[in-house]
Design a protein around this nucleic acid. Structure first.
Lengths: 221, 221, 221, 221
DNA sequence: GATGAATGAGGTTTCATTCAT
DNA sequence: GATGAATGAAACCTCATTCAT
């Protein structure tokens, strides 16, 4: 029981330096990732993860102290991937910009896919909550940064709370595509983007940005 | 729990059998509900639910065939409660209207609280998915109905997809308060409402509706 | 643990004197009998027996201290029924005599049907073993008595152990019909009887007895 | 158990993995066998079998999917052992022949001992019934084959049904010794054999075969 | 390092029996 | 007396984790 505490942080039992070892670690991560998404965290056994990765059960525990830690590693590895590029709002048609971002974000989300199993874990495991919150916070900060710049350029509603818009954007980016798909519709990033734009930009700004964008395009031609 | 105590004082609790049984069922549901939310579905055992409800393990199985069915019952019982009242968009300041709706929805959501644990289950249990989707669909339909009426009255952006706005509203209503709280901020329904309004109504409509609302208020005074 | 001993003998909790009570007792016995045969002793629950008898679970325990005791009662009630009538070997064609006895015995065995579940119980419960052995012994004694009389009349092989023949007869009477049926053949009591007769009577006796029997029949005509 | 001790003394037990596993399987089979016979199938728990075999509960389930399957394995493994050697009826004193066969059969039956618990299972588990019936059928066929040869040599009653005799023999072989022991007598295979012989062979054949056998014996002297 | 058999705690579920109504 | 809901011990089985090879 007392050695439980040790696991909480989830230190590497061994730093895999060899090529082969790295491969095995990767293989376990991939296997765990796939199975967690397919069957859920609780219903995936360490044995399965190992078997699916082509190694023995015991080997699992050489690379991860725990089933829990494997999930942790997945989160840490992959939450980075969700970072959106810094958006340039003034540069071109904001709806297109946003639609592009949404699609990219959603594509990564699909790859990640882990969010499905997080809610249950959050309740039990505050560390997960922290790791995840940290990741979200980073994304949030980057988006907020972009929003703020746009705000300073006068592109955004004067009388709105930037934090709230930012959260709204993230929430929509995370959930809209899945929700719509659940209802049988293909996710239409363009439409979602349009809606979000209404949220952020006053109509005249949108028009102006679009006109500018069209002109640039014309110039290019 | 508190009404248990009542019996100790005065009248003998001659409850018709059926009623006692109902009470026990309720108590199991409540217990399950609380534990599911606190510890997650997978981490809650039938034994715990029973103990927490003050009954023996076996009693659990008199009322529910298993844990899954208890959750099912919770969902079916409670999803109705989430139905928002039909909103009257034209009647008064839309931001206030919306803020009120959001707060009410969120309050009920807190009571429900189950959504936290659903994602993991949805993947494996199509029946859950169906029950839940049916519930969501109903809410969606009601919101869409309100939106459409407003649209017909020319209150809403002409060039926007009503389905998308509706989904966006639902998603924000479901997630915004929690997300914001996760980050330490008190949920500010008013701000969220404002953001959502920008999404739906063109600025002039908002202004007009607010003016009308103010006038009405003045008249009342 | 100590009160376990009390049950061993299986005293009646209450002597049912009323008509209705008797009926219920009967009904429980019948129900238990049927279910034991259909599903086996271990796989039959007290609840089922009660339900099938049309009474409440608790009522079962008013009439029987135990599931075990119900089986006991069945055994005691019914083992009597297996007692064959005392056979008159010299009187008529022994093969017919025997075939008749076999068929009757088998019919009662079918009605009883409990023998199927006894072997397992014998191991655990010496009391069963005793009750059953007592019953068997009685049957054995009756058969042996008949055999002995025949022996004294010189009808039976001089150089054979009467006990052994008697056991052989009982064993064949108990098992032959079922075994043959298991293999898809209709039980042919006549053939079994013939075989048993060879075991008991020297050929000349059989011939003599048959001739006498035929003559008697002729006389009747 | 006793060979456990051996390891403590001298050589290190480097057994190839597979062999160790085999040993464990055997040990579980043996343990299950013993407990089934001692306490009956239903009254034996998987945990007990494991404990008695000196392994953990979980280990049981590595080797057998459940109790039922262990019994199945016992049946399949051991039913072969019951196959009697092909009897040579004409060769020597048939009573001796038969007595020998009976004793051997019974000895194996004692080892097997499982028949005690089968009846209850047969009713509910058709697979058991099949496995067992198949085994019995094989034995039956072998006996019948011997009987038929003897019949063709004119050694057996002309007017008797060979199937019936065969069944009768099997039934007696299976049950006679146990039944007699139940009644406190030592099983007297010789007497049983004598009785069975009367069933099969006409008296003159028996006499002839015995005389021949005696002469051979004399010659040997 | 790698292996996978072994462990045993702990979850799920059943059912003989009791007991308040 | 009758009822059937309640009890909780005990069976079944799984799986995270360890450890001998």
């Amino acid at each position: 029981m007392s050695d439980r505490e040790d696991h909480l942080v989830g230190e590497f039992p061994i730093l895999p330096k060899q090529e082969r070892a790295q491969q095995k670690r990767e293989s376990l991560l991939k296997s765990g990732h796939a199975l967690f998404i397919m069957k859920g965290y609780e219903h995936t056994t360490a044995k399965e993860i190992a078997a699916n990765a082509g190694v023995a059960t015991g080997t699992f525990y050489r690379y991860f102290s725990d089933k829990r830690q494997l999930l942790m590693a997945l989160l840490e590895d992959q939450i980075e991937l969700l970072m959106p590029p810094e958006p340039k709002w003034g540069v071109r048609d904001p709806e297109s910009t946003l639609a592009g971002l949404l699609e990219a974000y959603d594509r990564r989300l699909k790859v990640l896919g882990l969010q499905r199993l997080l809610p249950e874990l959050l309740a039990k495991d505050s560390e997960f909550a922290e790791v995840l919150a940290a990741g979200k916070r980073k994304i949030y900060d980057r988006i907020l940064f972009g929003i703020r710049k746009a705000y300073d350029h006068g592109l955004i509603w004067k009388d709105i709370d930037l934090n709230t818009v930012t959260w709204a954007m993230m929430i929509l980016a995370e959930n809209a595509p899945e929700k719509m798909k659940q209802c049988g519709k293909q996710a239409d990033y363009r439409e979602v983007a349009k809606v979000i734009c209404r949220m952020i930009f006053p109509p005249d700004v949108i028009k102006k940005l679009q006109t500018e964008a069209d002109e640039k395009e014309d110039n290019i031609k």
